[in-house]
Design a protein around this nucleic acid. Sequence first.
DNA 1: GTGGTCTAGACCACC
DNA 2: GTGGTCTAGACCACA
Lengths: 129, 129, 129, 129
Amino acid sequence: MSLHIEPSSPDPIYRQIVGQVARMVAAGQCPPGTRLPSVREVAAAHAVNPMTVSKAYAQLEAQGLLERQRGKGMVVAAQAPASRSIRDRLQALAPALEEVARQAGQLGLEEGPVIEALRQRMQNENREQ
Amino acid sequence: MSLHIEPSSPDPIYRQIVGQVARMVAAGQCPPGTRLPSVREVAAAHAVNPMTVSKAYAQLEAQGLLERQRGKGMVVAAQAPASRSIRDRLQALAPALEEVARQAGQLGLEEGPVIEALRQRMQNENREQ
Amino acid sequence: MSLHIEPSSPDPIYRQIVGQVARMVAAGQCPPGTRLPSVREVAAAHAVNPMTVSKAYAQLEAQGLLERQRGKGMVVAAQAPASRSIRDRLQALAPALEEVARQAGQLGLEEGPVIEALRQRMQNENREQ
Amino acid sequence: MSLHIEPSSPDPIYRQIVGQVARMVAAGQCPPGTRLPSVREVAAAHAVNPMTVSKAYAQLEAQGLLERQRGKGMVVAAQAPASRSIRDRLQALAPALEEVARQAGQLGLEEGPVIEALRQRMQNENREQ
DNA sequence: GTGGTCTAGACCACC
DNA sequence: GTGGTCTAGACCACA
């Protein structure tokens, strides 16, 4: 359960954390009960204000993905939709795919080259991990 | 030259306009001289603040994609790099593809289903047009 | 749409705001589209930090009760469950009733005196308004 | 003398314990000398940190409701104001009633349905015991 | 004008 | 040790 934060990203830090945790939970990489790094740990590790991390955790709790264990920290919620089906996870990916399709259409690009470009990106992604 | 605006989208309205016009010009769908709908027309059609549309047009003018013709409104600039190569246009698509690849990785999705989902989205996109 | 804030209350200010707005929306006192006082107005009126108010509004937005109109402020959401039925509103009251029933049971109190006490409280409440 | 603990409740565990014991003593359901379950028993039975239970007992001792008997644990204090008058016990219930009245007002609910709902809750409460 | 984000630091409550 | 709340103040993005 390690987080990657990009301080210069257009989208805010707290949302980066929310997104990453949500996807990892959805992918089943964090079964219910998994303990998250404490607010202070994350804040120190990434040189970020604790409140920023706290805000992300609060939002994840509101979404029902995390649970607070008083005095102990946050854990992945018991009712968290762990390891959702491929179909469900594709649905989580839908907005990003939609954006690609729309932009590709406006750019007058055909299916072939776009798919090929995506394939390459995904292979790079796997190599990096 | 019709615009699609999503008021509830996470990215701001003015940027939606800039992005769409830029992509359509790059695709050669609007040859130099093509007249754009007036600020007032766009504002009225989409119930948007005219200043927002104006800001988008101003930004496109600054990028050299549009020209202001006195009394006539904005037109696609003569020096606009119309119909850029596929390679160039794919590069414009890169950030969106990057985002898909990253999220797919975090969701633990394989290449196959993702590519298939994108293919379907793109075919829908074409049908709608 | 005026808010009442009790700084010395055990439950936090931002939650007081959330609760009040939610109940007023549920009661149909604020039809969809009603504009809320701006963050800065509320903050100034109650000598509270703007972030505290902002936090409340953000939470109400996450619950789907409010919508952000960019540059204009927050309004009651179109899909907000306006003027819910008495049955629904009683359900919103359930936790508080539950608490009374539990405590009354532990105090060994009969139904009669408790109901009478509640009746008096509610009449006081109405007089104050 | 059995306790009911709600780990997910908004109010803290130690306060739940304090409240319940105080109300049961006030109701005369536990005459002076009644032995309370040991810290370890309560902690084990409810999967709660022993320190939390201990803190609750300490607070009740400070209030004069419990006494520590060496080697035997906590018992209800001799000077505990057992079986207080109905009037006194209603006063202990006042904050909860206040909360119901306030929320009902904001929800635009009339006295009738609220009283009826409370009546039902209290009858359920009695049946469960 | 609107809300959003982040920081630094203080204090509290709970376990 | 944990997270929560609030403040004061700065800066940004949007309309």
